[in-house]
Write a protein that binds this DNA or RNA. Structure first.
Lengths: 217, 217
DNA sequence: GCCTTAATGTGATCTTTATCACAAGTAATA
DNA sequence: TATTACTTGTGATAAAGATCACATTAAGGC
């Protein structure tokens, strides 16, 4: 993690057009800290007390749920520029420990807002309130989509879907990951993933390389 | 569904102690409609456009996700007195179709608030804003718990958990349901549920009857 | 170029759950 | 009471994935 110098107001106007009030943009600029993370860097760990809410302006963040008892985890969704982590809201407001883990999927830059403003601004700036509400809605949608996925679909469909999400997150049709990493995200066995990837290659959905998967078309 | 006469302000004070402003209580009383539903009655269907947000004052509501394409569904959680349906918020605000289904689990009474006030009151009444935020957080938590369940646990654990939730929702240790209904909620086969119930009976967790399951202690 | 290490491929076997096919029990009612 | 419609029980079989046990392949460091 590294603190960066950057014109916050400009970034907000560009990536968060829904945040319209000038005064709010100024407040964000004055209290926000611009942080950047290298791809793969841990942003928020399980059990960490969250003190900031991130406004993403670049890159993408992977959000993962972990099962404490057993040693398992499950990918939930990616956050991208223009989005924020509502899980952080919850954690902040309730001042409770985080039960998810976030890592930078690509090199990522974000504006961190100290938690106390989240709430304060809700009553002061309508566009902030709308932004927060819309973010919550989006995340609920994502969670429901995740539920659909694991409840209603089999591993092959889930795998393809995961690959597509991952490609979209990095805006590239090439995915850099090992089968092992994918298996972990999907809470599946590496062998099953390897076999299904082969199948996807045969059906011409992907091209396989070492540490690399290319989405076809 | 039936409209009922009832002292709304009194009910709010009793079941929603977090809603503190007198003026807000009065507004709720003047715009809210008290509705009651019989156990089993459909409250909100998939695809229905939601026009009200429910504040539960009695009974409980089952929230279920349905897979449109295939004919499958999955139980998400129960809502109880003092709670509200944040999924409705999303639907209302975005004015989009509901993708979940809610049915009265028991005889249920609720105060329906026309959607336009949800947003309006957020900036006017701090306690309302807090209530809405807290509701969102609660529901996210529930969704994550649901994900944990289907991702990390096997059918027997999930079944016991489901039975416990269902008993809690009705504040009774006796559950009235057929194996078929349970299987449907859990998106599992009836035979598997029947066999696992037998196993739970043998291990002394439950007592089985026809259309009836008794949780032991 | 050789060696080490990490990544991938692959067969065999085991578990969990779904599916199919009925049998048997119980409630409701003609 | 006989009949019909649910509900539950149960075996046999199948499918999806997990797990185990290695073989093979590729990349990077020396």
């Amino acid at each position: 993690m590294e603190q960066v110098n950057l014109d916050i107001q400009h970034a907000i106007r560009k990536y968060f057009p829904a945040i319209t009030e000038k005064a709010l943009q100024e407040e964000i600029a004055s209290v926000g800290k611009v942080l950047s993370f290298k791809a793969g860097e841990r942003i928020m760990d399980f059990g960490a007390y969250v003190k900031m809410v991130p406004l993403l302006i670049n890159g993408s963040i992977k959000v993962v749920r972990e099962d404490d008892e057993q040693d398992q985890e499950l990918f939930l969704y990616f956050l991208q520029a223009g989005e924020t982590c509502t899980m952080s809201f919850s954690c902040c407001m309730m001042n409770k420990q985080s039960d998810i883990r976030t890592t930078a999927e690509d090199d990522t830059t974000l504006i961190g807002i100290p938690i106390k403003y989240i709430d304060e601004w809700m009553m002061k700036y309508p566009s902030w309130k709308n932004f927060v509400m819309r973010s919550y809605d989006q995340r609920m949608q994502e969670l429901v989509k995740t539920i659909d996925n694991i409840a209603f679909y089999k591993l092959d469909d889930r795998l393809l879907h995961y690959l597509q999400e991952k490609a979209k997150a990095s805006s590239s049709s090439t995915i850099n990951a090992t089968h092992q990493e994918i298996a972990q995200d999907m809470n599946a066995s590496r062998e099953a993933i390897s076999r299904l990837l082969k199948k996807l290659e045969k059906t011409n959905h992907i091209k396989l390389g070492r540490n690399k998967i290319e989405l076809v078309q």
